[in-house]
Every structure is written in C-alpha cells, then in structure tokens.
Design a protein around this nucleic acid. Sequence first.
DNA 1: CTTTGTGCAAATACTTTGCACGTAG
DNA 2: CTACGTGCAAAGTATTTGCACAAAG
Lengths: 148, 148
Amino acid sequence: MKYLEPYIEQLKQAGFKVTHQRLVILDYLLHSREHPSAEMIYADLRQRYPTISLATVYNTLEMLSKVGLVVDLGAPGERRRFDGIVSEHSHYFCTECGKVKDLNLPGAERVLSKLVQETNLPVTRYRIDFFGLCEECQQNAVEKASSN
Amino acid sequence: MKYLEPYIEQLKQAGFKVTHQRLVILDYLLHSREHPSAEMIYADLRQRYPTISLATVYNTLEMLSKVGLVVDLGAPGERRRFDGIVSEHSHYFCTECGKVKDLNLPGAERVLSKLVQETNLPVTRYRIDFFGLCEECQQNAVEKASSN
DNA sequence: CTTTGTGCAAATACTTTGCACGTAG
DNA sequence: CTACGTGCAAAGTATTTGCACAAAG
C-alpha cells in the first residue's frame, strides 16, 4: 500500500494519528466504485479484519470526510454513502434502486468555478448531481408498463 | 389557502387523496425558508394541530417527494431536509452549523441543461450544491483563531 | 509517556410499520 | 360505501457514545 503515502501525509498534517483501521477503510474506498455505506464497508472489511468495529467505520468516515479524503454523497432518502474519489466528477443517482454512477462531464469544472464566484461565499466544495432511472430500472419500468 | 389549488390538482392527478394534513404540511413547506427536517415540521405543526402524528409527516413528505411537490435535499451527514420550493435554484450548506441557504444563479439553468444532455441518461432532476461556512460560522472561526 | 483511537455494548436518533378508526372521493 | 390516510404505539434501522484497553507519536 505504498500508494497511500500522500494520504498518510495529509492525515498527519491534519493532526490525526495514522492507524491500520483508517488506512484499510481509506484503501477500501479508493478501490470501490460502489459508493458504499458504512454498513457495506463494515460487512466487507470484517471478513479480512474480523475485529474491526462498525463504530470505528463510522468514526473514521466522519474523520476522513472532515479532512476531505472522502466525500459524503448525501443521497436523498438514503443512508449515507461515501466516495473515495474526490477528484472532480458528478454523480447519477438511480431514484429506484439507489445505485450511484460516476459521471465525467468535461465542461462542468469550468462552468462551476464561474458559478462559485457568483455566490460570493466561501465555497470549499460543490457538487452537481443528477437523478433518474438507471438502465436496469428503466428496463424494468418498461416491461412492467407493457404487461398492464 | 386558495393558492393551493394547483397543488391539489397535482395530488389528484397522481391518484392521491387530498387530506387536511397533506395540505397543511405542503403549506408549511411552501412558506418555510428553513429547509426543515420532518421533526422540525412536526414540532411546529403540532402546536396548531395537536393530533397530527410524526408518522403522517414522514409519510406525507415521502409522498410529496414522489409527486415532485417537495424536494429531499439529502444533506451530507445530516438528517433528511426538505424544500417546498421546487423551482430552479441551488443551495449553500454550512458545513459547521448545517444551515441551508437558497442561491439563485441565473447562469446555472442554461449550463445544466447542456450538461444533462451530455449525460445521455434519463435525468428527471438535478442539483447544484455548494458547501462552506455561513457568515456566522465564518465569524466564529475567525474569533476563535485570534483568541489562540 | 501522553494522547488519541479502537472495540464492544449500550444508548440514542431517525424512520417505518401494523392496526383500528376516520374520511375523501 | 370503499379505498386510502391517519394516529398511535411499537418495531426497525442507522448512528453515536462511554468506557477500558491498545497503539501511535
């Protein structure tokens, strides 16, 4: 896990201790494209590290969010979900099954930085989210409609 | 509450019954700029309608969100909060105290509709959110820093 | 060493559900 | 009248906390 070096640096800078658990959770998020919830992370990690506790997962996610190493997606009507990729990208939330998809919209960054200026507020982070049905749920909806 | 007519129509169209409670909750949200949580709505309404139940508030919010008459803001790390103003606008979330501020960014609408097209997905709704400190919390932070 | 983090269990907070009664259509 | 909504209490989930022990710096 050599690649974690820069993250470790950031943790230290922010005054937090670097623990095994924290690195494992961070590593998990950096490799997952599921935008998992705390419970999902816990369920997976427990298999490799049977003594890890759910409370630690929650605490760590809270801490990592504060430092900015992960992002709390705040999906409407859902439990909290997290993303370890903090570089510029948007999300598409399926309003049916709750799946979350990453979107790269090249134009967005430039546009948003202009909008940020308009706000005249100390913006530290922003997000663009889209909502609708994912392909699968759209398919199901069509089938359901035609069977009526 | 004559002004509720169009909303009542929409409820009927969607196949829902128009009850006193639903109208009261909708009216509350349409007049609040607090982006309240279910609990906040309940606490306030209970004073005027002592027999209303929290379950009804939750059920109604769920229903109104589905119909699109209110929006579930999905603030990260927070309980669910709702907005009765569904016309085009963005939000600024204070990462310290959780306050939510409305933002009107004239350029945003045009820009977003272009981005929506890029996604090639059936987008039914989107949002642009900003995060940072509200004026008050920013002030507090400055004072705290200077007292060290 | 000293401070912060962890694991566990227990507590709290948030949201949904089952059921008997009420009311809109 | 009939289906759907409401209120209440109870059950489920989700998340946080207190405390004794462990590990990081």
